[in-house]
């Protein structure tokens, strides 16, 4: 699938830089992707890969001293970069919503759940208090909260983590957004609750034909939930493609290494296939391909030259020697 004029969101060469002008640290480096209506895009990466920063940049939530630049940042037909802050806030509230990792801190502890949902409705849609109340109860029902009529008067601390995340989802879909960005929505939750929340997100996404961007460090979760996947490493996209293809035959050594380091992939073996080293930080990014110190296949070329995105649109890989079907590098 490639981007078209009908694409819901098109991001082209988005960069976010921190630090001084002379010595910038690019938390996100020339990232391009697009989201279609009714599809789930998974963005995976380890901590420090820039996956959360990119989503914050999309929402216009990067504050000084961060600097956001992009060749294109288009939502439907609107160029987000040309909008003033107020107009942009209107779009990000009405049509793009976001869910964060920790539901416990995303809700204001001083107000009831109903209050917070109704405020979200009021800001974007208005309506009388009674209408908003009915809508809020309906939303809580949609996200599977039992007895919404009484739950609406609860304070956040009276809810469990799973319930709070459901409330967050209710607030996020309050304005019928076309695009929902979920940043590690289940990391703070238990497995059985995680399964419930993901199922709920996917169900809502299908029903409303929303675009869903699922940002997570959990490869297996993305493998199960996403249609297309973007793999990020140290601020750059290293591989993109349909989930089924990426997880069947990864083309980038990093994706392969990530998959191999999962215990699931080492069944019956004594040791896990660990990827040595850590994601480079602000001061120790290597020259050439950013993965080269950790990559088992790295050559001298990788240590000097930075690879571009190779491959057909929709199935790209940022590597000089993409892996073939059997998982070996092509030369």
């Amino acid at each position: 699938m490639t981007e078209t004029d009908k694409s819901l969101l098109v991001v082209h060469n988005l960069s976010v830089a921190f630090g001084t002008k002379d010595n910038p640290f690019k938390a996100v480096d020339r990232v391009s992707f697009h989201v279609e209506e009714g599809e789930v895009l998974g963005i995976v990466g380890e901590s420090g890969s820039g996956k959360s920063v990119s989503s914050l940049a999309l929402m216009g939530l990067i504050d000084f001293p961060g600097r956001v630049t992009a060749d294109e940042l288009r939502f439907k037909t609107t160029d987000l970069q040309t909008l003033n802050e107020k107009a942009r806030r209107k779009i990000t509230g009405d049509e793009i919503s976001m869910i964060f990792q920790d539901p416990m801190t995303s809700l204001n502890p001083s107000y009831t759940v109903g209050n917070q949902i109704m405020e979200a409705i009021e800001v974007h849609q208005g309506g009388s208090k009674k209408e908003r109340m009915t809508k809020a109860i309906d939303l809580l029902r949609q996200v599977g909260i039992p007895a919404p009529e009484s739950r609406i008067n609860s304070y956040p601390h009276q809810l469990s983590g799973g319930m709070s995340q459901r409330v967050m989802i209710a607030m996020a879909i309050a304005c019928d957004p076309r695009l929902l960005i979920a940043d590690e929505p289940t990391t703070a939750l238990d497995v059985t609750i995680q399964a419930q929340i993901i199922e709920l997100l996917l169900k809502l996404q299908r029903e409303k034909q929303m675009g869903l961007v699922l940002i997570t460090h959990d490869l297996a979760l993305v493998a199960e939930a996403a249609d297309r996947v973007v793999v990020m490493y140290a601020g750059q996209i290293v591989e993109t493609g349909p989930a089924s293809e990426i997880f069947k035959a990864p083309k980038h050594p990093y994706t392969q290494a990530l998959m191999n380091s999962l215990p699931e992939s080492s069944e019956g073996k004594d040791r896990l296939n660990a990827l040595p080293g850590v994601v480079p930080g602000a001061n120790d990014r290597p020259q050439g391909c950013l993965l080269n110190p950790r990559c088992p296949y790295a050559t001298d070329r990788c240590r000097v030259e930075e690879p571009e995105q190779y491959g057909p649109r929709g199935r790209q890989v940022k590597c000089f020697y993409p892996l073939d079907e059997s998982g070996r590098p092509t030369v």
Binding site: S47, L219, S261, L262, A274, L275, V278
Partner: peptide, 11 residues
Amino acid sequence: LDVSVQAQVLN
């Protein structure tokens, strides 16, 4: 820990 680091520590 991150997945790749997780494997190192488990090993």
